[in-house]
Simulated scan of single mutants.
Amino acid sequence: MPRFALKIEYDGRPFAGWQAQADQPSVQQAVETALGRLDSGFAAGARISAAGRTDAGVHATGQVAHADLKRDWDPFRLCEALNFHLKPSPVAVLVAARVGDSFHARFSATERRYLFRLMSRRAPATHLRGMVWQVQHALDCDAMRRGARMLIGHHDFTTFRSSICQAKSPLKTLDEIRIEERQIPHGREFRFHLRARSFLHNQVRSIVGTLERVGAGSWAPDRVGEALAARDRAACGPVCPPHGLYLTDVAYRADPFAE
C-alpha cells in the first residue's frame, strides 16, 4: 500500500487533542474520517501516525502525519480531496507527498519546533482569543531570556515534565529557546521559539509558565537553573494554558515535501 506524508494545520480549540478518543473529537479522528471517505483501502479503524500528539487546545501549523492508502494518489489531488472532506472542521492539509515505506512521521523525525504566544496587555484579547495566553501585567523580556539560557543543552528535565509523562527518560537536549518581543496595540506579545529533537509531555508549557514568573518579577532568573537542578516537579513554576502553543515544524533527514 502506498504511503503518504501529510503536513497539517489546525486550530486546536474544538478538539480534545491530536489523538483519537472514543467519546471526544480529535484532530486524528477528523483526518481519518476524511481519508475513509475518499480511499476504499483506508478502512474503518485504520490509524494514521503523527509526529507529535498535541494536547487539548494546542494548535499546529506544521504537524506531520503519514497514512497507508490503497490508491496511489496524485499528491495534489489527495490534498485537495482531503480538504474538501475535512470541512467544516478547522483542519487543513497544507501539502501531501508520496514517501517510502520506511518513512514514519514520528520515529523518522530529527527535530521538532514549537511556538508559544504570550500576550501582555490590560484589554482582553478579541481576534486572538483562544490563540494566545494573556496576562495583564508587564513582563521583562531580558530577564526571561536570562532564565531561558539556563535550560539550553542536555539536561534532566524532570522538573519540567508532567507527572503522567510516558517517556522512558527525562533526559532531553534543548537546542534553542528564543524569545521574540513584539509591540501590539496597547500591549506586547512575547513569542517563545523552542527547538529540540523531541520534548517531554508538558515540557514547553512548564518552561514558558516558569519563564513568565521570571518576566513578572516573581522569580529571579537564577531560580530557573535551581529548579532544573532540583529534578523535582514541585520546583517548577505554574504550567501555562495550552491555547498559546503551536507545533510549527517537524524536520527529517530528507524533507518529504521537498519539490
Rank of each mutant, 00 (worst) to 15 (best):
residue 164 I to C: 11
residue 89 S to C: 06
residue 216 A to H: 00
residue 223 R to G: 03
residue 165 C to L: 12
residue 190 F to N: 03
residue 70 K to M: 14
residue 30 A to N: 01
residue 77 R to L: 11
residue 161 R to K: 15
residue 250 V to E: 11
residue 149 R to G: 11
residue 31 V to W: 05
residue 80 E to A: 09
residue 69 L to A: 09
residue 23 D to H: 15
residue 178 R to D: 15
residue 199 F to K: 02
residue 35 L to F: 07
residue 247 L to S: 09
residue 167 A to C: 15
residue 255 D to S: 13
residue 101 D to Y: 05
residue 60 A to E: 08
residue 217 G to Q: 05
residue 104 H to T: 02
residue 223 R to D: 09
residue 78 L to E: 03
residue 62 G to R: 03
residue 29 Q to F: 09
residue 228 L to M: 13
residue 150 M to Q: 15
residue 129 R to A: 14
residue 192 F to T: 08
residue 127 H to T: 10
residue 41 G to M: 06
residue 28 Q to F: 04
residue 120 S to M: 07
residue 163 S to V: 15
residue 66 H to R: 12
residue 171 L to K: 15
residue 158 T to H: 06
residue 244 G to T: 07
residue 171 L to N: 08
residue 111 E to W: 00
residue 45 G to H: 07
residue 146 R to T: 09
residue 57 G to I: 02
residue 15 F to M: 03
residue 218 S to D: 12
residue 10 Y to Q: 03
residue 157 F to A: 14
residue 126 T to N: 11
residue 224 V to K: 01
residue 65 A to M: 01
residue 221 P to K: 10
residue 254 A to Y: 10
residue 155 H to I: 11
residue 168 K to F: 06
residue 54 T to P: 03
residue 216 A to F: 12
residue 158 T to I: 10
residue 5 A to R: 03
residue 100 G to T: 06
residue 218 S to P: 00
residue 5 A to H: 02
residue 229 A to M: 14
residue 84 F to C: 10
residue 28 Q to I: 08
residue 170 P to G: 13
residue 3 R to M: 00
residue 149 R to C: 14
residue 250 V to A: 11
